[in-house]
Computed example of a mutant assay.
Amino acid sequence: MSTRILWLPADPLADATCFHLGDDGRVLARTALVPATPPDPPSFDGAQHTVLVVPGAEVRIDWLELPARSGAQALAAARALLAARLARPDDLHVALAPDGGQATRMAAALDPRLMHEWLARAAALGMHADAVVPEQLLLPVPIAGDDADTDIRVFDAGDRCLARGTALAFSAEPSLAARVLAGRAQQALPSDGIDSLVARALQPEIDLLQGRFAPAATRARPANRRRMAWLLAALLASPLLLVAAQALRLELAARGLQQRAAETVQQALPSAAAASTDSAALRAQLDAARAPQAFVAASGALFAAVASRPGAYLASLDYQRGDRLRASLFHTTPDDLEAIRGALAADGWQLVEGTGSDAPGGLLTGITLEPGA
């Protein structure tokens, strides 16, 4: 299949050049097209594909780190990265090179108004673009094994200079390009090698016809009437389906919680009836099961704290199921009581001081032991 390559100049009043390429990439014909004349595109019999080569000065080419993700996610990430680099990031048209399995992808960014202008210029010349390529990407990329002193390919296009490196591609005025490339090893491509550059448009690295500019044939086709009817029915039924699904989910969750609660009760109260669902009865059984453990823990901590103070002892001890541990403490000085309070606090208990009275050789103080906060 032969191809037409329409190369637009930056000046909309200048002549465009149309190349006719054969299947092997050779230039078969070249025609200058004058914008002011009525559209009369060269027939180029057999040409079935048109590639539009556009001025590259207004197209920014970047290589961005875009880890593997969906096309929409990669495009959103590219927009975010470019917004941080450009002074005017709003309403950019961003196109991405195909995902070659690498984290780094080429991205092209430009003002969408330029895309509209270039497509309109092509239409005015009687052509419809099947692909749009920035001119700087027609230069070959230096590859491993090339001359070690050459890392930038440069093509003199007269009023502009095209440059291409492994991670660099731009089109600029010769003086600006010279400043950008100062100190970089360069290889000037022959000025008569434009035919080889044009051939590279047959397999462009990136096509700017993406997103809003994508050809209609590549967009999603509208659904037919039967599909629309099914979608409408599904849309009308979706609220009921959502309510039913939510009810089923809550029912399953409730059953799961009930099962886990029954297992927990059996572990905590082996003597409890498996079928019992009376929360008050289960609470009473649980308190009854925990009462001996609570008394042992509280009394043990109290005995240890009192034993740490010479001369202090428990005059009485009282405990009733479901109540706090109460005691009457004999101590020789108030400091003893504070020391015992600190020892209990270290074990996670709070000593609540009650009434006190004098006793032979010391003091007798009523205390209550409670779990610490």
Score class of each variant (00 low, 15 high):
residue 295 F to M: 11
residue 295 F to L: 07
residue 296 V to C: 05
residue 296 V to L: 06
residue 296 V to W: 01
residue 297 A to S: 10
residue 297 A to Q: 04
residue 297 A to M: 13
residue 298 A to C: 05
residue 298 A to S: 14
residue 299 S to F: 00
residue 299 S to R: 01
residue 300 G to T: 02
residue 300 G to A: 10
residue 300 G to P: 00
residue 300 G to Y: 05
residue 301 A to P: 08
residue 301 A to N: 07
residue 302 L to T: 03
residue 302 L to M: 13
residue 303 F to Y: 08
residue 303 F to S: 09
residue 304 A to D: 05
residue 305 A to M: 07
residue 305 A to F: 13
residue 305 A to Y: 13
residue 305 A to V: 05
residue 306 V to H: 04
residue 307 A to H: 06
residue 308 S to V: 00
residue 309 R to P: 00
residue 310 P to K: 04
residue 311 G to K: 12
residue 311 G to E: 07
residue 312 A to K: 13
residue 312 A to Y: 15
residue 313 Y to F: 07
residue 314 L to A: 05
residue 316 S to G: 09
residue 316 S to M: 12
residue 316 S to F: 11
residue 317 L to A: 01
residue 317 L to H: 02
residue 317 L to N: 03
residue 317 L to Q: 07
residue 318 D to C: 15
residue 319 Y to W: 11
residue 319 Y to M: 04
residue 319 Y to C: 11
residue 320 Q to W: 07
residue 320 Q to R: 11
residue 321 R to F: 14
residue 322 G to L: 03
residue 322 G to R: 05
residue 323 D to S: 14
residue 323 D to I: 06
residue 323 D to A: 07
residue 323 D to N: 10
residue 324 R to N: 12
residue 324 R to T: 12
residue 325 L to I: 01
residue 326 R to T: 15
residue 326 R to G: 08
residue 326 R to S: 09
residue 326 R to L: 02
residue 327 A to Y: 01
residue 327 A to W: 05
residue 327 A to F: 00
residue 327 A to S: 13
residue 327 A to I: 01
residue 329 L to H: 06
residue 329 L to Y: 09
residue 329 L to Q: 06
residue 330 F to C: 12
residue 330 F to S: 05
residue 331 H to K: 10
residue 331 H to I: 13
residue 332 T to R: 15
residue 332 T to V: 11
residue 332 T to P: 07
residue 333 T to R: 14
residue 333 T to L: 11
residue 333 T to F: 09
residue 334 P to G: 11
residue 334 P to Y: 15
residue 334 P to Q: 15
residue 335 D to P: 15
residue 335 D to H: 10
residue 336 D to L: 00
residue 336 D to H: 13
residue 336 D to E: 04
residue 337 L to S: 11
residue 337 L to A: 12
residue 337 L to E: 14
residue 337 L to V: 12
residue 339 A to P: 01
residue 339 A to D: 06
residue 339 A to L: 01
residue 339 A to S: 04
residue 339 A to N: 02
residue 342 G to K: 14
residue 342 G to F: 13
residue 342 G to Q: 11
residue 342 G to Y: 06
residue 343 A to I: 05
residue 343 A to R: 05
residue 344 L to E: 12
residue 344 L to S: 04
residue 344 L to T: 09
residue 345 A to S: 15
residue 345 A to R: 14
residue 345 A to P: 07
residue 345 A to K: 12
residue 346 A to C: 10
residue 346 A to H: 11
residue 347 D to N: 08
residue 347 D to V: 03
